[in-house]
Design a protein around this nucleic acid. Structure first.
Lengths: 191, 191
DNA sequence: TATATACTTGAGTGATCACTCAATAAACCC
DNA sequence: GGGTTTATTGAGTGATCACTCAAGTATATA
C-alpha cells in the first residue's frame, strides 16, 4: 500500500546541479551532462525535477538564498561594514566554488536577450541582494561606521556593480583581483 | 576567365553578425538565425566565413578594434581623463548598441569554463583594452590631470572592473546606471 | 558570343538537443 | 508472502544543431 523511497538525495543533487549550471551556464549544460554527473537516467531525472529549466530555477533559488544567509552571518560576526568588506575577499578567494563569477549575473547575461523566464528570476534575486546590501549600508550608518550623508540605496547599487565587476575580473588570470578588492574596500572605508 | 563577384557586402555582414552575437551570445545564436538575418544560404555562409566560430572571431576582433579606436578618438578630443570619464557615459547611453554589456565579457563568461578558443581571444582583447586604459591613466598623470602617486596599471585594472560591472548593471532596469557612472567618475576626479 | 570561374541554392548529413514512456525492479503495508 | 505503489531503466521521440555538396546560375574575360 505504501511506496518506495528514492535512492538519491534530492537535496544534494540540486546542490550538485547548481555547481554545474553555475560553471557551464544554461546552454553549456546538456541533459546528458546532468544525467552523467548526477547519475540519473532520463526517466528518474524528469520524475525528480520536471525539466532542465525547473532544476535550474531550484539551483538559482538555492544560490541566492545561500548568498543572503552567508551575508547575514558575516554581518553578525563582523558588523555591517565588516560584512561588506569581507564579502569582497570571500568571493575572490572561494577556492571551492565552481567559478568566481556570480551565477545570477551569468544567468542574466546569457538569457536576458531571449526574455527567458530564468533571466527574470535571476534579476529578481539580484534585486533582493541589492536590498541586502542597502540594509547593511543603512545599519553601518546607524552604528556610525560610515557617514550618514550618503543614500544607502545608491551605495548599494554601486557596491553591487563593483562586486559583479570584481567577480568577473577574478576569473581572469591577467588581473590582480586582490588589488581591486583592496581598492574597493578602501573606498568603503573612505565613506 | 575571371570570376563573379559576391552580391553581398562582406564587411557589413560581419558588422551585422557582431551585433547578433553580441546580443544573443555564442550558444544563443544558431546558424539558422545568422542565415535568416544575413540573408545567406548555408553554402554561401560557409564559402564566405568558413564556420560559425570563424565569423564570431571576426566579430570579436572588430568589436575590440572599434573599442580601441573610439577610446583614442575621445582622448584626442577630451584628453586622457576626459576620455575615461566619457567612456562611462558612452557605454550606458549607447542606444543603438545591441546591449549595454561588453561583448568581450559576455563571451568570456559564456565560454571560459569550456576552454573554448573564443574565450581566449576575448581574454586577449580585454588585456589590450586594459593596456589602453593604463596608457590613458599614464597620460593623465603626465599632463597633471591626476596625481602621480598611483600605479597606472592598478588604476586601469580597477577601472576596467568597474566598467564591466557598470555595463552589466546598465542592462537591468532596476538600477540607476547613470548614478553609478557618476559615482565612478567622481572617484576618478578624486585621484 | 563562348568559356571559364566562382557565387547561389537548398536538400540533406550525422550528431546532439530536451524529453517520453512502457517495461522492470524494488520497497512498503497488510 | 501477496498486492500495491512507486522508483529505475534505457531505447526511442521529433526537433534542431553545425555543416556539406552537387547542381544551377550569373558574371567576368577573351
Amino acid at each position: 500500500m505504501m511506496p518506495r523511497k528514492p535512492s538519491y538525495d534530492r537535496d544534494a543533487l540540486i546542490d550538485q546541479a547548481r555547481d554545474i549550471f553555475w560553471r557551464y551556464g544554461w546552454a553549456g549544460t546538456s541533459l546528458k551532462d546532468l544525467e552523467r554527473e548526477l547519475k540519473l537516467k532520463p526517466g528518474s531525472f524528469y520524475a525528480a525535477f520536471g525539466s532542465k529549466d525547473a532544476l535550474y530555477a531550484m539551483a538559482l533559488e538555492r544560490y541566492a538564498r545561500d548568498g543572503v544567509t552567508n551575508l547575514e552571518e558575516m554581518a553578525q560576526l563582523l558588523g555591517p561594514l565588516g560584512a561588506l568588506k569581507a564579502q569582497l575577499r570571500r568571493v575572490i578567494d572561494a577556492s571551492g566554488a565552481p567559478t568566481k563569477a556570480c551565477m545570477l549575473a551569468k544567468t542574466y547575461a546569457e538569457l536576458q536577450a531571449k526574455d527567458h523566464e530564468l533571466a527574470g528570476q535571476a534579476r529578481t534575486h539580484m534585486v533582493t541582494m541589492k536590498a541586502c546590501f542597502a540594509d547593511l549600508f543603512r545599519r553601518a550608518q546607524a552604528v556610525g561606521e560610515i557617514s550618514p550623508d550618503h543614500d544607502p540605496d545608491r551605495l548599494a547599487a554601486r557596491y553591487q556593480s563593483d562586486l559583479l565587476g570584481l567577480r568577473l575580473s577574478a576569473e581572469r588570470d591577467d588581473v590582480n583581483a586582490s588589488q581591486i578588492a583592496e581598492d574597493i574596500a578602501a573606498d568603503l572605508d573612505r565613506l
